[in-house]
């Protein structure tokens, strides 16, 4: 299908560019590791303290890393006005949204795949469970769904880098709350069933915001 082949072309193009420069992934990864390091000093690495704040730490790190990485998503499209180049391609505007969502999702998941084991190692936590990985992937989808929309919006404003967090963070607060609570339970070794009601909140957030952002995206790139 033409829609998906073009979506994949956009994702592939972003991945290729990233593979060459490693701009986003390396910077975001270093940032995430630094945040973890700073948390360690801020809260002290005593086991009882870690148990209390571990899940919060994880999601503060990923939320801020997400802002950093999503900020870059549309800046590359503005550099030689490539966004106009995409707008003259024979396809609906939504192709751009989906392609960018997939690319940002890919970058975020790579960063998380590296940061999570480091996190586990440094704080001696059972991070690598199916539950926690599942939660991470689901919450990241929600971040990227909202973040890609706002990233496209933010590049058209005066203070690009500052606008995204101001828009993005209040909207994803419910997602962060659910992520923190669910990860807390997952770190305590609870089963999938005990993650209720957080899991349905996360999943419905993902679905609803993917659909709404998909529908509304054209208004942002079009004048």
């Amino acid at each position: 299908m033409s829609f998906w082949s073009k979506v994949i072309a956009i994702t592939r193009k972003d991945a290729l560019s990233e593979l060459r420069t490693k701009e986003i992934i390396s910077a975001v990864l270093v940032f995430a590791l630094l945040v973890i390091l700073i948390f360690n000093f801020a809260f002290g690495a005593r086991p009882e303290a870690v148990d209390l704040v571990a899940s919060g730490m994880l999601w503060v790190t990923f939320a801020f890393a997400g802002v950093l990485s999503l900020n870059r998503a549309f800046i590359v499209e503005k550099e030689d006005n490539c966004l106009d180049g995409l707008l003259i391609c024979p396809m609906s505007r939504e192709v751009i949204y989906v392609g960018k969502v997939l690319a940002s999702l890919l970058f975020m998941l790579i960063v998380e795949a590296i940061a999570l084991p480091v996190f586990a190692l440094l704080f001696n936590l059972p991070v690598l469970t199916a539950q926690l990985i599942g939660i991470t992937v689901l919450v990241t989808i929600g971040f990227v769904a909202v973040g890609t929309l706002f990233s496209a919006l933010a590049v058209n404003t005066k203070a690009r880098e500052m606008v995204l967090p101001i828009l993005f963070l209040p909207i994803v607060i419910p997602l962060i709350v659910a992520a923190v609570k669910a990860s807390e339970l997952a770190l305590a070794g609870k089963s999938w069933g005990e993650l209720y009601p957080w899991l349905p909140i996360i999943i419905s957030f993902d679905v609803i915001f993917l659909v709404v952002a998909y529908l509304i995206f054209a208004f942002i790139v079009e004048e």
Partner: peptide, 15 residues
């Protein structure tokens, strides 16, 4: 987007 977010905010902050 903000309006659609409100039910999520209410739900998550209460729970």
């Amino acid at each position: 987007i903000g309006f659609i977010d409100i039910p999520f905010v209410i739900l998550s902050t209460s729970l």
